[in-house]
Computed example of a mutant assay.
Amino acid sequence: MTHLLSSPSFKKLYEIRESEHFIQMLPLSLKNGIAFSFAKDKILFIALSHPCFKQEFYHKIALVKQLLKQYQRQKNTLLEIIDIKIFVTYDAYKKEVEKNQEIAIPQVYGELSRGEFKNLAKDQEIHALFESIRGNILKNQE
């Protein structure tokens, strides 16, 4: 497989594979926030999945650039990359939010009351409301 990636026609695939290997070398706190990456015009673009990860990257951008230099020296790949840019892909963030909203289905609990209570209301309207509540409770138990 490596000989295929070294051919000029698969250069882009090789770059993607190498950038994925570089991302696997990053610390876990950074790696978890990456949605995808790509190289263009000698810049490695890293797309983040959430806006909070952008701040984490800004605090550790020097570490990431240092790791890139070490990776370039040791693996002799990604040599054309001279800078790293990060951005938030709101498409991935939107999908994550929608996914979390789908999961957040409210739990439905069974009726815990048996409808056994004394209706001490003296007003006829309030008395009727309590009796309708009792009817709903008994209906929910079925």
Rank of each mutant, 00 (worst) to 15 (best):
F117K: 02
D91E: 12
A39G: 14
L48M: 01
L4M: 04
I84G: 06
F53K: 01
Y14S: 10
F57R: 02
E142M: 06
K122H: 09
N76G: 03
E142P: 04
E125Q: 13
N140M: 01
A128Y: 01
E96N: 07
Y14K: 06
D91W: 12
D83W: 12
F130I: 10
G110F: 05
A121E: 09
D123V: 02
Q70N: 08
E116D: 11
R73S: 10
A47G: 03
F117I: 04
T77A: 08
F38I: 04
L112F: 15
I137W: 04
H59V: 06
S29M: 11
I103H: 09
N100G: 12
E111I: 15
Y93K: 07
Y93N: 09
K122A: 11
T77M: 11
N76Q: 05
I46V: 05
P8W: 00
I133N: 05
F57P: 00
K40E: 14
I46H: 01
G115R: 01
E20R: 14
L44N: 03
I23E: 04
H50C: 09
R17N: 12
H21E: 14
F10Q: 14
F22E: 13
Q74M: 05
A121V: 04
L26N: 11
K60A: 07
Q55M: 07
V108N: 13
L5S: 02
V97K: 14
Y109S: 13
P27T: 11
E98G: 02
Y14W: 03
L67R: 03
I61C: 04
I103W: 10
T77N: 10
K99Q: 12
I103G: 06
K31D: 15
M25D: 11
Q141P: 02
K94N: 08
F38K: 06
S7W: 00
I16L: 14
K31T: 15
A39H: 09
A104M: 13
F38E: 08
S6P: 01
L67E: 03
